[in-house]
């Protein structure tokens, strides 16, 4: 009886002992070739191209927040030299204007950020400035979202909520054609 059962087992099983080794080999191959680099970055929507020069819009000076970055990576914010560390706070103050100052935006809906750089500006500095401007809007959206809905702003927010917030504080960032200074 014992003998038959042993023969049965021999017949019916394929030796799967080496299966693990084969799988390990494949696993190690994929481990080595894998690059789990999540692609992250700052997403931007470019304005569509038009051949005609844009209409010159007359804007109130107080509604425009101009940021210039020159070929030496220096910042000129509203006509005066500035450091990048203070850019975020100043932008936020400009857009929201909590104290209703005379020289800051009348309303977040009217606020316009104007960014201009030279061809010689380093990409690193450009992205740092862009990041700060984006951060100012992100923080304002977050504050607004907490005030209205009591939850922090995130990408997973319902579209209706997002739309409502962006209607109140639209992100208007206009980029001018760069000037030809300091090209390598």
């Amino acid at each position: 009886m014992a003998k038959t059962s042993s023969r049965d087992r021999m017949k019916n099983e394929i030796n799967a002992g080496s299966m693990a080794d084969i799988a390990f080999l494949l696993l190690i191959f994929f481990l080595v070739t894998t690059t789990i680099d999540v692609d992250k970055g700052i997403t931007v929507k470019l304005p569509p191209w038009s051949d005609e020069p844009p209409e010159i819009q007359q804007l109130k000076k107080r509604n425009v927040f101009s940021v210039l970055v020159n070929a030496q990576d220096q910042l000129l914010v509203r006509g005066e030299l500035a450091e990048i560390d203070e850019l975020r706070e100043r932008t936020k103050e400009f857009i929201a204007n909590p104290l209703k100052k005379e020289d800051l935006s009348t309303n977040p809906k009217n606020a316009i950020i104007s960014l201009k750089n030279d061809r010689g500006t380093s990409y690193e500095q450009y992205l740092a400035v862009y990041n700060e401007l984006k951060a100012a809007y992100d923080e304002l959206w977050d504050e607004e979202c907490r005030r209205l809905y009591g939850i922090p702003y995130s990408d997973d927010l319902p579209i209706a909520y997002k739309r409502a917030i962006k209607e109140k504080i639209p992100m208007v960032l206009s980029e001018a054609e760069p000037t030809n200074f300091g090209e390598e």
Binding site: D39, K40, G41, I42, T43, V44, K45, L46, P47, P48, W49, A71, N117, D118, R119, G120, T121, S122, Y123, E124, Y126, L127, Y130, N131, E177, P178, G182, E183, E184
Partner: peptide, 26 residues
Amino acid sequence: DVTMGIVTDVKTVLRKSGQLKINYSA
């Protein structure tokens, strides 16, 4: 370390070809 000149040129080409959604990798 790249200067904005070449980046602007690329952006202009992207705008002209209707590819408006871009992502500055960081």
